[in-house]
Design a protein around this nucleic acid. Structure first.
Lengths: 224, 224, 224, 224
DNA sequence: TATGAATGAGCGTTCATTCAT
DNA sequence: CATGAATGAACGCTCATTCAT
């Protein structure tokens, strides 16, 4: 379809509205789980309604259609990621430690939220067509980039970090390394012949990433 | 019905065998395209048979079932990647240049073969269940890792590179940055509000990655 | 999709429930006819839905799957046989006449309900696997055997019948002769070279069976 | 189809003809097993060719098509039954013992050859359409009836048996009771709530049938 | 607001059969 | 004589979605 149908938001604060909100939430949670596990095409409306212990019809009532539901799921996981990022908020005044914290947060977040990854991969498979239909999804954008920029600025000011860095690049470097490691753990484990998802292996990777990032941002030692 | 059970290769060199091989190949090519575009569930047998200009029935004839076809596709793209990697073969005797070449190759390969990426993401969505059923897929493994190891060894010997590095880690760093940039270009472009897939943007990213990798592997300049 | 999982009965008495019941009934009737005529494998879901003037989909809606529908058909024909048997109810006080009535009923019932026979044969081809899945099918059991027992008891009491008879055996004898004659009429007619299904031939067979049964249950005339 | 295609019979006695005959026989044996187990529609050409360890194509080569193969199977089992019946050949000079032997043979034959029963039931499901296309199937006919006639004649001559009996009726009575017991053992076991196929239960039933038949054919004791 | 009933297209797969050597 | 390749219809079943209350 081309025209996006909208489901009704739940309004009001009465008892019935609360019940309705509960139904809506339970559908959203179920859809997140099902889409994350089976992808967009593999995640059927029936699987979702059963997981949510409600009826197919309710999905159409609240979200218009399957696509509308998927968009709502994307908006929701972006929102939750944004909230989590705002919450952990490292202090830029110690730029080295702050950068380490950012990496640790990213590695941990992807590892603990594999749904986030498979949903984003699913969306990329569809060339971002759902995100592009969501006005809300565009709002989030890069508070994380701003944070990196702050850290880099403090670091540069103190002569610790290079001053020719683009915060966006550093952000992308951190995200790449953190995301890919979880995202491709199954094929990579098979390819390398060793498991990547043990706690020990993850800790090791975290150290590698921190080392890599710090070496990248630090000023070159003055050559003699 | 049909006498084949599994996706046996076509044997013989006569005219009919050649025609049969052509049919088989055309199915494999079509399946690669369709699975890469629509994912496993979204890639229907009918879409594939129509793209290959043959009949659904032939897919079962040559590949047993949909899953067998998907496995064959995975084996094929791994094989082609392996071949390409063997072919580009940079000389480790100039380790800095060799590392740069590896990065350039990886960035370019993923960019030119987005099918490879969506197929691998699809397989990761399914937790690697198809790869685990393929004996051939296990054979490829890491000639690339060996190459990196060679480069790092020469570099360390000459006092250019650190000697405490694990080739696997460096390999993973390079792959992460190269893969992720293409893999998540749609959601990242939306998130950052700027296009990532232009030639210029890619060249820029390639430079960032090369810089990052070299800084990571180089020995620390002796502090005075 | 559809909310029902198994063949729930239709509840309620409103207009819509009545329409739903009509749909369900029409599927059941059509399935009885089609399965009886073509067997389980030969009786396709499409043939049934077309006969019932509805959609394939509705079969899954009301009966879960093809097997569920077949089980429902078996339960239904057993139920109808049970009802018919309860209804004809001969008076055991005239045991000879009662036995004759039982035979006449059996011969007539199988003749008038060839569907019952082909469905049972189909189920025996499948080694009773569907009946074994039906809780309801087990309930019916042998009210007919009880009736035979009553008749034999009265007959024995009056010195007409033997007292060493097992009602179950007599029941099986009657059923064998009645059932087989209709069940195997096509191969038997070909084998014997004469038609068995004319009204006259059936009447003749009925007499043979009655004679056979009565001679079997009667006390031996006291030899002098 | 309406026109019966014929497969080629195997001619000659050379080595290659023997191999061909072996292939043909193995298909026939496999088809008997498969049709007996799954029915006509449920018994696919593939199942048969695999069981026979040959190729689908061979079935068409030797038997024309699926229907031709089924007809060949029917002819074969009729032939084998006829041979077995000719072989056991009881002596009519002791008519009581001969009748008992006939019953024992019938009960045993059906029990040991359930394939015969399911194939005949399958053919009856199809209203005898295949038998009617077989010229050979008509030849067998009732040597068994003739045997019964002989036995009854001797018995009547000696004043042991009634003289108003039709051999065909007695034959049908014996066959009914023997055939039905095995034919409907699954549904009947479920219905009666007791297993019918144990050796003991079968022996018991054999005795019941013998008793029933003898009482039916014996002359009435002269009433005083 | 919630729910049972209906709809028709499409799914992966198997069918019996024929075409070519 | 045997066999690999091809064919198109049909199979049981699930899909996302809409109609009615």
């Amino acid at each position: 379809m081309t025209q996006l149908k909208q489901g009704k938001p739940v309004r009001g604060t009465g008892v019935r509205e609360a019940a309705a909100q509960a139904t809506r939430d339970s559908i959203l949670r179920a859809a997140t789980k099902v889409f994350a596990r089976y992808g967009y095409d593999g995640g059927s409306v029936e699987k979702i309604s059963q997981t949510a212990k409600t009826y197919d019809r309710m999905i159409y009532y609240y979200f218009g259609n399957k696509e509308g539901l998927f968009i709502a799921v994307l908006e929701d996981i972006y929102q939750r990621m944004d909230d989590a990022e705002a919450k952990f908020a490292p202090d830029p005044s110690d730029p080295v430690e702050a950068l380490k914290t950012v990496v640790r947060f990213k590695v941990a977040y992807y590892r603990k939220n594999p749904d986030f990854i498979t949903l984003l991969n699913t969306e990329n498979l569809h060339k971002g067509k759902h995100v592009s239909k969501s006005p809300r999804a565009r709002e989030f954008s890069a508070q994380a980039v701003t944070l990196i920029a702050d850290i880099l600025a403090v670091g540069a000011e103190r002569g610790l970090f290079r001053s020719d860095l683009d915060a966006r690049d550093v952000y992308l470097l951190i995200v790449s390394m953190s995301y890919f490691y979880t995202s491709n753990r199954y094929t990579m484990s098979a390819f390398l012949g060793e498991a990547l998802d043990g706690a020990e292996a993850v800790a090791r990777w975290e150290a590698v990433v921190i080392d890599c990032i710090l070496r990248t941002v630090r000023v070159d030692a003055p050559s003699r």
